[in-house]
């Protein structure tokens, strides 16, 4: 991302995505859904709801490079997703976003996958963290 990219907004037809690794796969999360990114071992995090993706075993220990994403919330109830690593912050033209494959509709609904985008020609799943945190509550 160049300094110029950081100035681009959704009004200009761009979206800022956090590129994160989770369970060995790369996901994209709309940066506007994130309040803060903090180390996962902070004591105050344990007072919040930790979001656990259904495809990750509960006993799995996050790797050392993991980070905690605090999801923006209107009601003060903070929810946190701990990801294996934060890879990048990308500014992507909205026109480059692709729909999630229609035959995978069940997964789209259950896992709050809202679309896909190609990063380095590789498909990356877009995760709606706001919807997911509502589903998990």
């Amino acid at each position: 991302m160049t300094p110029d990219d950081s100035q681009k907004t959704s009004k200009d037809g761009y979206i800022r995505l956090l590129s994160v690794m989770l369970s060995g796969s790369r996901f994209g999360i709309d940066a506007d859904q994130i309040e803060r990114i903090v180390p996962p071992n902070r004591d105050d995090l344990h007072h919040n709801t930790i979001l656990r993706p259904p495809f990750i075993a509960p006993e799995r220990v996050p790797p050392p490079q993991s980070v905690a994403l605090i999801v923006k919330s209107d009601n003060g109830m903070k929810k946190v997703l701990i990801v294996d690593s934060l890879q990048d912050i990308l500014t992507v033209p909205v026109a480059d976003l692709r729909p999630f494959p229609p035959l995978m509709a069940r997964e789209r609904e259950a896992l709050a996958y809202w679309g896909m985008v190609l990063i380095d020609d590789k498909p990356v799943t877009l995760l709606d963290l706001t919807r997911w945190s509502c589903q998990c509550s």
């Binding site: 989770l22 369970s23 796969s25 993706p53 259904p54 495809f55 995978m104 259950a110 498909p123």
Partner: peptide, 20 residues
Amino acid sequence: TTIPGVSELFLGVINIRGEI
């Protein structure tokens, strides 16, 4: 590309000339 949590009836997704 595999997608976590997706049914075992799918192997994953592919990029075909920019479409997924």
